Amino acid sequence: MSTSTVISTVDNITLVTLVGFPAQVDSIAKIFDSIAQYHINIDMISMAPTHGAFTGLSFTISDNDLVDVLAFTTQLKKETDVNVIVSSVNHKISIYDPAMKNTPGIAAKVFSAIAGTKADLRLITTSEVEISLLVTEADFDTVLSAIEQAMAG
């Protein structure tokens, strides 16, 4: 692990996945605007590749906002054909290192370490300098330990 690598965690995260969601940017903008009306802060966002006119759109929120997001998703289901999947009590693990931008193999090291745990990864988001993973409560300690060992070695 380089001296600039930081591994951080956030507990009590809810994953919301919208399956069969329209794959247009205006639809995405409207959905996030609607969620903002409930005063819900969104963290991780991931969109699956489109299948025709539809996609899967996933995002995370704090478990503290679970009741509000359920009110939102109940209304969404009444108004659309979108299938909603909600999973709470997850954990976010983030590996941040500015060296990632110019160092091949860091993602390979992280995912090789996780592969040995057989963990259930719920969501992956990245940037040039960060890898963020959403894992279940059951897999959190094992995955965190594997990442810490891999990055130390």
Rank of each mutant, 00 (worst) to 15 (best):
L18D: 02
P104Q: 09
K77A: 15
Q37M: 13
E130I: 10
S34V: 09
D120G: 02
F72Y: 15
D43G: 15
P49C: 11
I61R: 01
A23G: 11
F59H: 05
V19T: 02
D68H: 07
Y96I: 13
S145N: 11
E137Q: 13
D11I: 04
E130K: 14
N12T: 05
V110F: 00
V135D: 12
T74V: 03
L144I: 00
S2Y: 09
N64Q: 08
S127V: 12
M44C: 13
D65G: 03
T136R: 09
S94Y: 00
D81G: 13
G56R: 14
Q37C: 14
M47N: 08
A29Q: 10
F111S: 01
P22L: 01
E130D: 14
G105A: 07
V110N: 00
V69D: 01
M100D: 02
V143E: 02
M1L: 11
I131F: 12
H39K: 10
T125S: 15
I131A: 09
S94N: 10
L70C: 15
P104D: 05
S46V: 15
T80Y: 15
I40W: 04
T60N: 09
P49L: 07
I93F: 14
Q24F: 03
I45C: 08
S2T: 05
E79D: 15
H39D: 14
V82E: 09
S62Y: 11
K30H: 15
M151S: 00
G52N: 11
K118Y: 11
L15G: 06
S112N: 10
K118I: 04
I95W: 01
D81I: 08
A23C: 05
T17W: 03
M44K: 12
K109R: 09
I28C: 12
F111A: 01
V10K: 13
I124P: 07
V84I: 15
I114G: 09
S145Q: 05
F21W: 04
V69N: 03
N41Y: 03
Y96N: 11
A48L: 06
H91W: 13
I31Y: 01
L57M: 09
I114Q: 04
N102R: 10
L133K: 08
V69L: 08
V143N: 02
K101C: 07
S87K: 11
E79P: 06
R122S: 08
A146D: 02
P22V: 04
S145W: 03
A48H: 07
Q149Y: 02
F32C: 02
V82W: 09
T14N: 06
Q149K: 08
T60P: 06
V82H: 06
I35D: 09
L66Y: 14
K109M: 05
T103H: 06
Q37N: 15
I61P: 04
S87M: 14
E128H: 13
A150F: 06
M151L: 07
S4Q: 13
T3E: 09
N102C: 08
A71G: 12
V110P: 01
L66D: 12
I40M: 02
S27V: 03
A146K: 02
L134M: 14
G52E: 08
D33T: 10
N83V: 15
V16N: 00
N90S: 12
L18Q: 02
K78I: 12
D63G: 10
I147M: 03
S58C: 07
I35T: 04
I28G: 05
Q24G: 10
